[in-house]
């Protein structure tokens, strides 16, 4: 999933301050799963903002809605009947959702309520970790199912570096050394000989190096 974290309340208070009527829009997809911007977080943020402006004795109205997905235009249409009741939209979706609302409602300010962080997986309740960098040319087949681009601090395709200590990364003892994980997997798979195949320099055109990317499925488009 795409993970996100709510921005500090202080920043959100500042960003909504110029407006009196806010439409707070959540998203039922990734940000719900990572507890950043689903229905529950929408309700909580709404409550917090209202209380703050009550205390400031400042007129402030907030309307809550959580869409099935903010990254698909058909769901954004649900905002049409209510968008005029708001001076600005505060979106709790990832950056994709924020941009879709901005694209649909050209004259409405749209503010991000979360910081979109990474593509990751849930390690355990309340903990998410980065797993994929979206490079557009997956190497997991040769690295034992552990991504060195997303999970090695130096994105070494031929690691580990000299800073790997007891399975941990030199950058932070909370980070697993990706190459230790890769090596452990290759051993478990009986594929240790694969380690010594040098992985060539990557063609980053499939990633961000090639500029903004687009996928077109001719049969569907």
């Amino acid at each position: 999933m795409i993970t996100a974290e709510r921005k500090p309340i202080e920043d959100l208070i500042q960003s909504v301050s110029p407006y009196r009527r806010i439409l707070l829009v959540g998203c039922n997809e990734c940000v719900t799963v990572c507890s950043a911007g689903g229905r529950k977080e929408v309700a909580l943020l709404s409550s917090a903002l209202q209380m703050h402006f009550m205390k400031e004795a400042k007129p402030f109205e907030i309307k809550e809605i959580t869409l099935e997905r903010q990254c698909d235009p058909e769901y954004i249409e649900e905002l049409v009947p209510i968008i005029d009741q708001a001076d600005a939209v505060l979106s709790m979706a990832c950056g994709c959702g924020v941009q879709e609302i901005a694209r649909r409602f050209k004259e409405k300010p749209v503010l991000p309520a979360v910081n979109t962080t990474f593509m990751g997986a849930s390690e355990r309740q309340g903990v998410w970790a980065e797993r994929c960098a979206g490079c557009g040319d997956c190497v997991l087949g040769v690295t034992g199912g552990v991504c060195p681009i997303a999970r090695c601090s130096k994105q070494l395709l031929n690691g580990p570096c000299g800073g790997s200590t007891r399975g941990k990364c030199e950058v932070d003892p909370d980070i697993d050394c990706a190459w230790q994980l890769i090596w452990d997997r290759l051993k478990a798979l009986g594929m240790t000989e694969r380690y010594e195949e040098n992985i060539p320099a990557k063609d980053w055109r499939t990633g961000r190096g090639g500029g903004p990317r687009k996928i077109v499925r001719e049969d569907l488009a």
Binding site: M51, H52, F53, M54, K55, A57
Partner: peptide
């Protein structure tokens, strides 16, 4: 303080 603010309003 939220209730106080609201009363002010």
């Amino acid at each position: 303080p939220a209730r106080v603010g609201l009363d002010k309003l």
